[in-house]
Design a protein around this nucleic acid. Structure first.
Length: 591
RNA sequence: GUCCCCAUCGUCUAGAGGCCCAGGACAUCACCCUUUCACGGUGAAGACACGGGUUCGAAUCCCGUUGGGGACGCCA
């Protein structure tokens, strides 16, 4: 066993806690629990749930992981990132990846959220094996034997475990009002003390049965708080799979376990659910790191083996302050459009590009692996906690774009057409219509510079299709307000080149024949045979060979940047080529 | 205010005391190739935050400083 593998949980288990604290007043805590829960006659015992959700039978070393989003609206790119990590870890170890809906905040709940999440995960191929997999006609669709995976439907379970804690003196009802809480915090801030409900501030911690009874009689709202086991003077050490060994003061705050609306807080639900769902590894954003002492204490209170924790640094963005200084911050779904996965879909990044980019963020060694295994499915790249860096990563669109170019460049024309059309159908219907009305020419155009040794990377995203394809469609070509000729040669020179080329053009020309012809023509018109010659004596020539080709290119394609001109001409066909040359001449080869 | 985490080129990072006057990828620049743009090729520039230790030797270990991030809710 290496130092890093050492588990610290065992050390901090306080075995005789219940004997020490609960013994003096076991009856009282049971009476209080009874007061609180007698109305819920059907409440089952924790034992019942333990049997209902037995340990999973999985191969040794199998990881059970999860993605636990709260349904507040959009799908954050970080959510895809977390799903990717969790799903890979589970699959690579022969385990299970499930999705649990953390919908315990009634105020932030959003109706479409589940569909948004599931739709996004479906799209990127990261649907969970178990848990919430959809929503149909207002009904959650779920898979798996450890459900329900919707927290708002698990109220009885949380209450059962909360009652258990209260009976044993490990939790208690607290009737403090919001105003009282605000007061306390104000006092604490003023006197520079730690904020929170702990020690002497936790005034309901040791309340009598009578006090509870009276408060209930007055119909006061209450929450259930943890009776914190820790002392701020002592330190707790544990091992995080990514951050390493961490040491902090123990938790002594009586945090809320059950809110006054009866729903659990994140912390309590995490402990109960991840225990009952038999999660082995909790891999989540590192904003949760500071709650680990509390979470470990909850597991300790129940006498459960806690899961292993891995806290992943966030995807960040560079923020420029008013004073010009730069600072990093987590991508915010409110102010950063690129926080939303939908943004990447709309931009037209292929799903593989998004996933490979995120994988690169997990482990930059991925790019070496990819170079060595260009054909292998991404899922075969093995990830492990050692590869994670402990800090967050800046989102880098240049890198994403580069990956995306590589991926698109490696698609064959048929696949490219299918994928591109799929995207256009959703995001650019006019283009989709053209693609569908002109299938052969579109596929031929997409096939240019494809498949050979040197694949062009002119398409970075599906959004680039339009600018790369418009000139093969007369419908779009004719909408061009003008032809983007360059200054060299001027209009007369352009006229001369175009009319001669039109006259001599042979549709049977092979590529080299056409280039040979064009070069001869260029020289005949007083152009240099190549740019090097021209650059040496610019005064002697009207321009160079490339300039002549550019005139023809612009006339035929209406663009200065195109794939190989001869290839484009083959795709367009003789008629259209002649037509466009004539058209350019007709307009006096004007810009 | 308290607590925690983090710190290598612009970015993602490799680096587990000598293989490192620090390697790769993206981005940038130059040149070459070339019918334009891409592609491809070659090359350049570019980092161990700072200060102390420990050691024969430190990017790597320790301490401190600075900087960045996070947590301290009946939000997750």
């Amino acid at each position: 066993m290496t130092r890093k593998d050492k588990i610290f949980y065992g050390v901090m288990m306080i075995k005789d806690y219940s004997a020490k604290s609960a013994q003096p007043q076991p009856k009282i805590t049971e009476q209080i629990a009874a007061l609180l829960f007698n109305g819920q006659a059907g409440l089952l015992s924790p034992d019942h749930y333990e049997k209902m959700y037995p340990p999973r039978t999985l191969p040794k070393g199998a990881m059970v992981t999860r993605f636990a989003p709260s349904p507040t609206g959009l799908m954050h790119i970080g959510g895809v990132y977390m799903s990717l990590i969790n799903k890979r870890l589970a699959e690579q170890s022969g385990g299970v990846f499930f999705l649990r809906l953390e919908d315990t905040d009634a105020e932030r709940y959003n109706d479409d959220a589940v569909n948004t999440i599931v739709h996004a995960l479906t799209k990127v191929g990261l649907l969970p094996h178990e848990g919430v997999v959809g929503q149909h006609l207002g009904q959650m669709q779920q898979k798996g034997n450890y459900g329900t995976y919707v927290q708002s439907q698990r109220k009885e379970i949380y209450h059962s475990f909360a009652r258990h804690l209260i009976e044993r003196g490990l939790a208690y009802p607290c009737f403090m009002s919001m105003e009282e809480l605000d007061d306390i915090r104000a006092k604490q801030t003023l006197t520079k003390q730690r904020p929170g409900c702990y020690g002497k501030w936790a005034k309901w911690r040791d309340a009598s049965v009578e006090q509870v009874q009276q408060a209930l009689a007055k119909n006061l709202k209450y929450v259930i708080r943890l009776k914190a086991l820790g002392s701020y003077e002592r330190r707790l050490t544990w091992h995080d799979e990514i951050k390493g060994d961490i040491s902090v003061p123990e938790n002594d705050v009586d945090v809320v376990l059950i809110k006054s609306d009866g729903l659990p807080t994140y912390h309590f639900a995490h402990a109960v659910d991840d225990h009952l769902m038999r999660t082995t590894h909790v891999v989540r954003g590192d904003e949760w790191l500071a709650s680990v002492p509390l979470h470990l204490q909850l597991f300790q209170a129940f006498g459960w083996q806690p899961p292993k924790y891995a806290h992943v640094g966030p995807i960040e963005k560079l923020d420029t302050q008013a004073d010009g200084h730069h600072s990093r911050r987590k991508l915010s779904k409110r102010s950063d459009p690129e926080a939303n996965v939908q943004y990447y879909f709309q931009k037209g990044f292929p799903v593989e590009a998004i996933l490979e980019y995120l994988t690169h963020l997990i482990a930059s060694s991925f790019e070496d692996w990819r170079r060595q295994n260009p054909e292998k499915p991404l899922a075969e790249f093995a990830i492990n906690f050692k590869q994670f860096s402990p800090h967050g990563a800046l989102s880098d669109f240049d890198k994403l774009t580069s990956i995306s170019k590589d991926i698109i460049a490696n698609l064959d024309a048929e696949t490219l057409y299918r994928r591109a059309l799929e995207w256009a159908l959703e995001w650019d219907q006019p283009l989709a219509a053209l693609m569908k009305n002109h299938v052969p020419i579109t596929k031929n155009a997409l096939n240019i510079e494809r498949g050979g040794e040197r694949r062009s990377k002119r398409l970075a995203t599906w959004q680039d299709l339009r600018s790369q394809l418009f000139f093969i469609y007369d419908e779009l070509f004719q909408q061009l307000p003008s032809l983007p000729f360059t200054d060299r040669p001027e209009s007369d020179g352009r006229q001369a080149i175009l009319s001669k080329f039109l006259k001599d053009y042979q549709p049977t020309w092979q590529k080299q024949e056409m280039l040979d012809y064009a070069k001869e023509m260029a020289i005949g018109f007083g152009f240099a045979p190549n740019s090097k010659t021209f650059d040496k004596n610019p005064g002697q020539y009207k321009g160079h060979f490339g300039d002549v080709m550019m005139v023809i290119r612009v006339a035929i394609c209406g663009a200065r940047e195109t794939p190989d001109l001869w290839e484009v001409m083959q795709v367009l066909g003789v008629e259209r080529v002649r037509q466009r040359l004539k058209n350019a001449l007709h307009h006096g080869a004007a810009r």
